[in-house]
Simulated scan of single mutants.
Amino acid sequence: MGSLAASDNSQSLVVAEVRALAGPAAALDPRLIDAAVRAWSDNTKRAFVSDLTLWAEWCRQRHIAPDNATPELVAAWIRVLGRTADGDEVKLQREWKQRSPATIARYLVHIGMAYRMGGLTDPTAEPLVKLELKAMRRARGTRQRQARGIRFKGEVADLDGPASGVCLAHLIKACRRDWLGLRDAALIRTAYDTACRRSELVSIRVDHIEGDGAGGGALYIPSSKTDAEGQGAYAYLSPATMKAIRDWKKDGDIREGPLFRRVECHADGSVRCVGNAALHPNSITLIYRRLIRDAYAKGLLGEISETRFEKLLKEISSHSIRVGVAQDNFAAGEGLPAIMQAYRWRDPATVMRYGARLATQSGAAARLAKRFTS
């Protein structure tokens, strides 16, 4: 019943946004809307609604009704968002946050879909828009900002050597010895073993985890960003991670339901209780950054200036451990197919991008330079 209600609500939101764009007299395409609602993930639906809201604001500022939008209006938006505007458009850039080429391309996909759902001509499909997007990419480049990886022992070439800087080993040491610390330790260990995305981490339930009889275990992941059909997948959990999960479950009296929950704290920072609801996906980045701050305060990160530390914090996201896992696998000599299979990647370019920075330290050029300078 709850799932049905959620589906109805999603469809209502999509219909409302398309209706607002197309106007009350438009003949909406119910089949296209229904198919989209069933095919899209919750994140895609939220992005669709958010992107249409931004487009409506742009149209309002330009004093043009969305249903009368032209390719020229779309092209101007691309220039403003991509910081390639000139003339009178330059002053508009102060009112709009700069977006990456990938984000702008996503906006155009959703906006174009909304026009087609509303039975209107799609202004994003015109050659002018496609060429403006290509020109912006050429001017800006398409390299996406990558989250800083959190590797197990940090940016080290020798995986058997001591830990250094911001790394999982130091974050584990920084965890408190109360409910909050037990939850955090189990969370980051699970994130590292499985390379789960934030949505996958907060969706883990107690019954998704099984022991393997040898100290380790397996996590069942019912669905993910790259598994829209819900076929499910399994990820390995190390003995250390299984122990951390058991400690968290025992102390938090968690027997069923969501595994990673919010821990309520008093004003002085001491813990008050363990909640019943799962963590929100947005909390994952905040937890990682808090643990890094704790590690810094305890002197675990070594010599680092406050300015450099604050810059480093901004580079951390919920994706940082996933990036670090890929980098550690490359450092350990694992091949691309094995990494993709173990951690549920479908795009080899993404994995290779994560390992690109590491390649400068351990690739052929680095080995040759080391040989001639040793």
Score class of each variant (00 low, 15 high):
Cys59Ile: 02
Ala366Glu: 11
Gly119Asp: 08
Arg148Ala: 07
Arg293Trp: 09
Ala359Glu: 15
Leu182Lys: 10
Gln11Tyr: 06
Ala342Val: 05
Arg308Ala: 15
Asp122Pro: 00
Glu334Lys: 12
Ile292Gln: 09
Ala342Tyr: 05
Arg19Asp: 01
Pro281His: 07
Asp34Met: 04
Ala65Trp: 09
Gln341Cys: 07
Pro66Met: 04
Lys243Glu: 11
Arg197Gly: 05
Ala278His: 11
Arg177Cys: 13
Val74Cys: 10
His170Pro: 02
Thr103Met: 01
Thr360Tyr: 13
Gly154Lys: 05
Ser100His: 03
Trp345Thr: 05
Gly275Tyr: 06
Gly154Trp: 06
Thr44Arg: 02
Asp8Trp: 04
Glu229Met: 04
Gln146Met: 13
Trp77Pro: 02
Ile188Asp: 02
Ile245Trp: 03
Pro239Cys: 02
Lys45Asp: 01
Asn329Met: 15
Ala35Lys: 12
Gly181Asn: 07
Pro337Gln: 09
Gly275Asn: 06
Arg246Lys: 10
Glu334Gln: 13
Gly82Ala: 15
Ile254Arg: 04
Trp345Cys: 01
Asn9Gln: 12
Leu368Ser: 12
Ala277Pro: 03
Leu336Glu: 09
Leu300Pro: 10
Leu81Phe: 13
Gly333Asn: 02
Ala338Cys: 05
Arg137Ile: 05
Asn329Ile: 06
Asp178Ser: 09
Ala47Val: 00
Lys225Thr: 00
Gly181Glu: 06
Leu182Met: 10
Ser164Pro: 04
Ala349Val: 13
Ala25Pro: 01
Ser283Ile: 04
Ala326Ser: 10
Leu133Met: 11
Asp51Pro: 00
Leu368His: 12
Arg346Thr: 12
Ala278Asp: 09
Ala338Ile: 09
Gly23Phe: 04
